[in-house]
Write a protein that binds this DNA or RNA. Structure first.
Length: 260
DNA sequence: CGTATCCTGACC
DNA sequence: GGTCAGGATACG
């Protein structure tokens, strides 16, 4: 699941490939992508020059010379593939953009849950997002305030993009482990001191992921401490990592050293 | 607040 | 051949 570091990595790859280029041809190859990108929007896209690529939370924003913005979200399994217009289409290519220098960028997404939408000039169609989790200047007071207004568990609150934009299931669990906080603790019960520690832990896990090229590691030292490690020993205390469902998704944590 | 929905590969 | 996963949204 691409979270902030993976989306940041992908948007850098994309930026290098597309900024300054003009869209020659664009196709939506899957029903679910055609819903978000109907023919009239594909037509608007054609001939536009891409002037910049920005990231906000897990969204990628492609600024176009027309004033429109192409908004991309990878959801579960999306990623960019950059090749040339001469290449054969990838099996899971959902949106394919051919550029004037024969570069082709394809949104590859086996599950087809990615969203690509054209936001007309002036009307930003982003959902409400909190401060970007990668921003080192996030105000601890704002973060504490957001938590204090939520009665859901701290883990569920961290997944709410209005609290911090860019945190997902993996890094929420990892950050709670680093901060030694029980994921079941009510968000509004988190003390100021622990919230400050949690914010630092979020930055730490995101920075570390970013430094490993925005790619997940599945072996060796860089492996996750709790995510997808049910039954394995906690590296701090040896207790078996537990898995519980929260808001319909899996939370992994150490039931011994993560406290309420 | 919980639950269904979108999708399809992976797994039983 | 059925179930599950999961980010975000919609709905009860």
């Amino acid at each position: 699941m691409p979270e902030l570091p993976e989306v940041e990595f992908a948007s850098r790859v994309l930026r290098k490939a597309v900024v300054g280029r003009t869209v020659r041809r664009v196709r939506a190859l899957h029903r679910s992508q055609r819903r978000g990108l109907p023919p009239r929007h594909l037509a608007r896209l054609r001939g536009a020059t891409i002037i910049g690529v920005e990231r906000r939370g897990k969204h990628q924003l492609l600024a176009l010379s027309t004033g429109d913005t192409l908004v991309v979200h990878f959801r579960m399994t999306g990623d960019w593939l950059v090749d040339t217009t001469a290449a054969s289409l990838e099996p899971y290519a959902r949106v394919v953009i051919d550029l004037d220098d024969d570069t082709r960028v394809s949104l590859v997404d086996p599950r087809a849950l990615s969203t690509v939408t054209l936001s007309p000039s002036g009307s930003s169609s982003l959902p409400p997002l909190g401060p970007d989790a990668a921003d080192p200047d996030v105000d601890a007071g704002v973060f504490i305030g957001a938590l204090s207004r939520r009665r859901v568990s701290i883990k569920v609150a961290l997944l709410d993009q209005r609290v911090l934009a860019g945190v997902g299931n993996i890094y929420a669990a990892e950050a709670l482990w680093v901060a030694r906080i029980d994921p079941r603790a009510p968000a509004n019960s988190i003390t100021r001191a622990r919230a400050v520690r949690l914010l630092a832990a979020i930055r730490e896990v995101l920075d570390r992921a970013q430094r490993s090229s925005g790619r997940y590691r599945d072996t060796g030292e860089g492996r996750f401490q709790v995510y997808d490690r049910e039954g394995e020993p906690c590296s701090r205390c040896g207790t078996a990592i537990a898995r519980i469902p929260q808001a319909g998704r899996s939370t992994y944590f150490c039931p011994h050293c993560q406290r309420r």
